[in-house]
């Protein structure tokens, strides 16, 4: 099968930080959330996929083709939205669009105009007058107007208000109605992904902790709460722990073990993606 995105053993070394053993697979028709704390390597990974920086090892395939050998062909089908969206400041939206559209073989001006309308952007507005949110909307309009089969987004919603973010999610849902399109979406705002993502890849400190179907992840992790004295001899059963004067809270991915160790003396609740992320990192 042709994955939309297939990363094998990707490696990139910097001074003081190494990205290694990255393995990710995304099938067409699905949304993958790429979560991790700041500095975990999310932006680096995306830059590697887009060949903005050179990999030191491993393989990246997009639509089944090598991302460097078929770079132009692949990028023609990729729509991108970055965290910082830079454009030529003195140009207007329309002028900027005219520059960019010439590079795409399947550019659809009508589609672009309808998005600009929907996003309430003025085509004559100069780029330098746009807020961060408006630049993001502009990027999204471009990304969605050339029949892209893969949308890559790097922290597109950070710094934006929740109303806005929900609006973006609605748009993403609409894109994914077409089962040939995929979305790869990095963020540290996990609540965005809790609803929409089909798969979640969690990265920390340059390494992947897990890459799984979201439902499976949320089904296997639990938050356990109880009194501190119950922790005696049981601390190692938790991935991450928070102990206070009034009790403890811990993350586990082995529900059965917890249930048999504690019987009914603890409170077991669903864990959110944020819980999983925070405890997995802090608990180390």
């Amino acid at each position: 099968m042709n994955y939309s995105l297939e990363i094998k053993n990707l490696r990139k070394e910097f001074k003081g930080f190494t990205l290694k053993d990255l393995n990710i697979k995304l099938e067409p028709g699905f949304i993958m959330g790429f979560i991790g704390p700041n500095g975990a390597g999310k932006t680096t990974t995306i830059k590697l996929i887009m060949n903005l920086i050179k990999k030191d090892g491993g393989q990246i395939k997009v639509f089944g083709k090598d991302h460097v050998a078929a770079e132009k062909e692949i990028k023609d089908r990729i729509g991108f939205v970055y965290d910082e969206n830079y454009y030529y400041e003195d140009l207007s939206i329309r002028q900027m669009k005219n520059i960019v559209s010439k590079f795409y073989s399947k550019w659809d001006d009508n589609q672009f105009n309808s998005y600009i309308n929907e996003f309430d952007l003025n085509p004559k507005a100069k780029i330098k007058t746009l807020s961060k949110g408006m630049k993001m909307k502009f990027s999204l309009a471009i990304a969605l107007s050339h029949q892209a089969d893969l949308i890559i987004m790097d922290e597109p919603t950070s710094g934006l208000d929740p109303v806005f973010r929900r609006g973006i999610l609605d748009i993403l849902y609409n894109i994914i109605q077409d089962e040939n399109k995929s979305i790869f979406f990095s963020t540290h705002i996990t609540t965005d992904l809790e609803k929409i993502a089909d798969y979640i890849t969690f990265i920390n400190d340059g390494e992947i902790l897990f890459s799984e179907a979201k439902d499976k992840i949320l089904d296997s992790y639990r938050i356990v709460k109880g009194s501190t004295k119950m922790l005696e001899g049981n601390r190692d059963k938790f991935i991450g722990l928070r102990e206070t004067d009034v009790g403890f809270e811990g993350l586990t991915n082995n529900i059965n073990q917890i249930e048999s160790s504690f019987n009914n003396d603890v409170l077991i609740e669903k864990a959110s993606l944020e819980d999983i992320m925070v405890y997995s990192i802090r608990g180390e």
Partner: peptide
């Protein structure tokens, strides 16, 4: 000059364009 000023290198290089070209 413009790419330097506007920091647009990443954006331009994300378009379907080979560096060689």
């Amino acid at each position: 000059v413009f790419d330097m000023k506007s920091q647009t290198l990443s954006m331009m290089n994300s378009l379907p364009l080979r560096r060689k070209d």
